[in-house]
């Protein structure tokens, strides 16, 4: 018998736990629960056996500056985002460029559940049960040309629905990039859901990147454009402050952010006295990904 995460933590509990919360928060959360259709994603051997954070934690503690800089802002504001219809433009050095629907890139029958650790550059961490498809499968679908070396991603720009974009806190659209071998790595996925539900807006609906060995800001949300390139693309945080955020952004306890240490992390959900745990190289995925960076000086290519 296949158990879903909703069997472990029924949604009624989430509702009860947020009874005390403002009606506004509930109003944002309810539509998600009403339309919730259960996705039956295949479990994956690449999942961690760590216990995921609760749905409530994952959907109320987000860095998604398109909806505000506070951690609760996305949960409050992302309800305004229209995610259907949605299309992703695939461009650049590909055989079959064009406009793709979310269903084309991540068809239901290909969905896998990937329970991954998520380590934010701000030195906190979570465990999230994503649902999605390997990015490699998407790239195979569109046909990557031999000259392509990098993949560039772009988030939607729609200031009337993404109120954080009404101020130039970042240079919109948010952009991220991966080296092609990073993009092809089996751990790298395009996610369209979490727990067994469609992706909540505040977590990057309808389709987002997840690269579990890199700081969270690499895992770009609400993607509308995928572009295959020969040159290393610009990524938003590096563009803002290159001394603090690099292109690679691999989780690395030995290379500190200039303004804070990356040696340890706070585990979200551990409570007031949860303390800290040591951060693992490549967020604990070193066995799978360290070889990608053989011979590179990671204190230079941070």
């Amino acid at each position: 018998m296949k158990l879903n995460w909703s069997d472990v933590t029924p949604h009624r509990i989430f509702l009860d736990r947020r009874k005390f919360m403002a009606a506004g928060a509930a109003a944002v959360a309810l539509p998600g629960l009403v339309r919730a259709q259960t996705i039956n994603a295949r479990p994956s051997p690449l999942s961690t056996d760590q216990t995921p954070n609760t749905f409530e934690e994952i959907t109320n503690y987000n860095n998604f500056y398109e909806f505000g800089t506070g951690k609760e802002d996305p949960a409050r504001n992302a309800g305004a985002l229209t995610t259907d219809p949605w299309s992703v433009e695939v461009a650049g050095l590909v055989d079959r460029p064009g406009s793709y629907g979310v269903e084309d890139l991540a068809p239901d029958n290909a969905l896998e559940e990937r329970i991954y650790r998520l380590r934010c550059v701000e030195a906190w961490s979570m465990v999230v049960p994503w649902i999605g498809v390997p990015l490699a499968s998407v790239l195979a679908k569109v046909g990557v040309q031999p000259s392509a070396k990098f993949v560039e991603f772009e988030t939607l720009v729609r200031p009337e629905e993404m109120i954080g974009q009404q101020r130039a806190i970042l240079d919109w659209p948010y952009r991220e990039g991966l080296r092609l071998d990073e993009a092809m790595h089996p751990l790298t996925i395009l996610a369209t859901g979490l727990y067994d539900q469609p992706m909540p807006n505040q977590n990057g609906a309808p389709i987002r990147l997840v690269v579990p060995w890199k700081y969270g800001f690499k895992s770009i949300k609400s993607i509308v454009r995928i572009n295959l390139l020969e040159q290393e693309p610009v990524n938003t945080w590096k563009q803002l402050q290159a001394s603090e955020y690099g292109f690679y952004a691999n989780v690395n306890p030995q290379v500190d952010h200039p303004r804070w240490s990356q040696a340890t992390e706070r585990v979200i959900g551990a409570g007031l006295f949860g303390g800290r745990k040591e951060t693992l190289m490549f967020n604990g995925y070193g066995d799978q990904v360290a070889s990608l960076y053989a011979g590179m000086d990671l204190s230079v290519n941070y």
Binding site: R17, F20, E56, E57, N60, Y61, K71, E72, W124, R266, I268, G269, G271, L272, G274
Partner: peptide, 15 residues
């Protein structure tokens, strides 16, 4: 807020 759970997902940072 501490005793009624009104501190949100990350009580440490909120406090």
């Amino acid at each position: 807020d501490i005793f009624t759970g009104g501190l949100g997902v990350d009580p440490v940072q909120e406090v």
